[in-house]
């Protein structure tokens, strides 16, 4: 694969865009953790926003790295975080249900 200098540069800039796209997701995850009213809604904010944010950053760094080995490792890390956070999210929600913590409702 002979990538010319221009394509490398375009890939690098696309990567930067992806990273910049990912940052607001992390910030909104934190804001949700602080602002949302109960444990279930906070779990929503934390798992979804952070995983998408990490996905964008992984994607951006992979575009910038220009190497298959680094890309594979980044994807492995993202996959691990995805599996781990969705599993622990379900576990926390299930335990909260078993402890009879009532979900917050409107009004």
């Amino acid at each position: 694969m002979a990538a010319t200098k221009e394509t490398m540069e375009i890939l690098y800039n696309c990567g930067t865009l992806f990273i910049i796209l990912g940052l607001p997701f992390f910030l909104s995850g934190t804001v949700g953790l602080i602002r949302f009213p109960d444990i279930y809604t906070r779990l929503h904010a934390l798992t979804k926003a952070d995983n998408v944010g990490l996905g964008c950053i992984v994607c951006g760094l992979a575009l910038q790295s220009g190497s298959w080995a680094v890309t594979a490792k980044l994807l492995l890390i993202w996959l691990l975080v995805l599996v781990a956070s969705s599993a622990s999210c379900h576990l926390i929600a299930r335990s909260a249900m078993q402890k009879n913590i009532e979900p917050w409702t409107r009004s």
Partner: peptide
């Protein structure tokens, strides 16, 4: 504990 999870994802990033 959810903050620890936040540390996990943010720290990785």
């Amino acid at each position: 504990m959810m903050t620890a999870q936040l540390f996990g994802t943010c720290g990785v990033a």
